[in-house]
């Protein structure tokens, strides 16, 4: 009796609803299992690998959305990160221990610029990050000369030569634990953990929620509102750079055109989890569930060989349904 009512109460919570939506998706997958394909671990493992880059972006997006903002620039920052990573490691031949911090610093700085414009210049986040989206895409094209940066490298004497990829590419694109988990999935999990710690266990997290829920009340409580906003966008930029490195490793080159419109997937994942765009509410756990829900949806559709057009339409419909479902808790 009591366990039953506890369960009902739990289902009424945001996490309960998000989990219910995810379970529903898994049930659908079990029914349309494509001749048992859905029951193979490798399918789930691949799904996790495929959503990881999006998921990493969604972590940063969650933080920004909780401050009642939005970050449209993550897809371009991802491409910029991928291009810089390829440039550092292939033509410049930097070792990974310099290349990775370099790329992360670039993502962090450009995120901070967005944050500065939002916090100090009081420009709307949508506009600021739209501008950053265009700017960073342009910068990625400048750095790469408009072309993919591959292991086909120009030599000083003008000749072109194929070089070996450094081992970092192989490492990021491999699987560990007996081939059961992709390294990118592990990186995604670490990003979720990091975000969770920041939001739930550090003072900064309290500031982020307070600024998103009521900025004026936060300011009058002595919360450093500007610093909080800058840090939120900086975190989003940092995660975009992480995602860029993963993307480059998986594609084995740095493509300035990569990751187009990924920001929309990231936003959809956050929203499907139940974090509202109004700010002040939500969590990265919800986002994790949202990422898995979309991941399974895509996987089920591709297993059942649904055409691209059907996939897009269904994804759109499911986003709306999930948000309506989440809202039922009021």
């Amino acid at each position: 009796m009591t366990t039953q009512s506890t369960l009902i109460k739990w289902i009424a919570t945001p996490v309960g609803r998000a989990v219910l939506a995810l379970l529903l998706m898994i049930v659908i997958g079990s029914v349309f299992n494509a001749d048992g394909a859905f029951f193979r671990w490798s399918v789930h493992r691949d799904m996790l690998r495929q959503v990881s880059v999006y998921g990493i972006l969604a972590c940063g997006m969650t933080v920004v959305i909780i401050t009642a903002g939005i970050d449209l620039s993550v897809s371009s920052l991802l491409a910029l990160g991928a291009v810089f990573f390829a440039w550092f490691t292939l033509p410049l031949q930097w070792p990974a221990e310099f290349a990775i911090p370099g790329v992360l610093a670039i993502g962090l700085s450009l995120g901070s610029v967005s944050g500065f414009l939002v916090a100090r210049m009081r420009i709307q986040p949508f506009i600021v990050t739209l501008a950053m989206m265009v700017f960073a895409r342009g910068l990625a094209k400048v750095v790469s000369g408009g072309q993919k940066i591959t292991n086909y490298v120009m030599q000083p004497d003008g000749s072109a030569q194929l070089i070996e990829h450094p081992p970092i590419y192989e490492l990021i694109d491999s699987r560990i634990l007996g081939g059961n988990i992709s390294v990118v999935t592990l990186i995604f999990a670490l990003c979720v953990l990091f975000t969770w710690l920041v939001l739930s266990r550090f003072r900064l997290g309290r500031h982020i929620y307070a600024v998103g829920s009521n900025e004026e009340a936060a300011r009058l409580s002595g919360v450093p509102v500007r610093r909080t906003l800058v840090l939120a966008y900086a975190m989003s930029g940092l995660f975009a750079a992480v995602a860029g490195i993963c993307q480059a490793a998986q594609e084995t080159h740095g493509d300035p055109e990569t990751g187009m419109a990924y920001e929309l997937d990231a936003i959809a994942m956050v929203v499907i989890g139940g974090t509202t765009l109004a700010g002040g509410k939500g969590s990265v756990i919800l986002t994790l569930i949202g990422v898995l829900t979309i991941g399974y949806l895509q996987k089920i559709l591709s297993l059942n060989a649904a055409p691209e057009a059907t996939r897009l339409m269904l994804t759109g419909a499911i986003i709306v349904c999930a948000v309506l479902f989440q809202r039922g808790r009021r």
């Binding site: 929620y209 307070a210 829920s213 009521n214 004026e216 009340a217 936060a218 009058l220 002040g280 509410k281």
Partner: peptide
């Protein structure tokens, strides 16, 4: 409501 509490928290 406007400047005192963060109502969602």
């Amino acid at each position: 409501k406007a400047s005192g509490l963060a109502m969602d928290l």
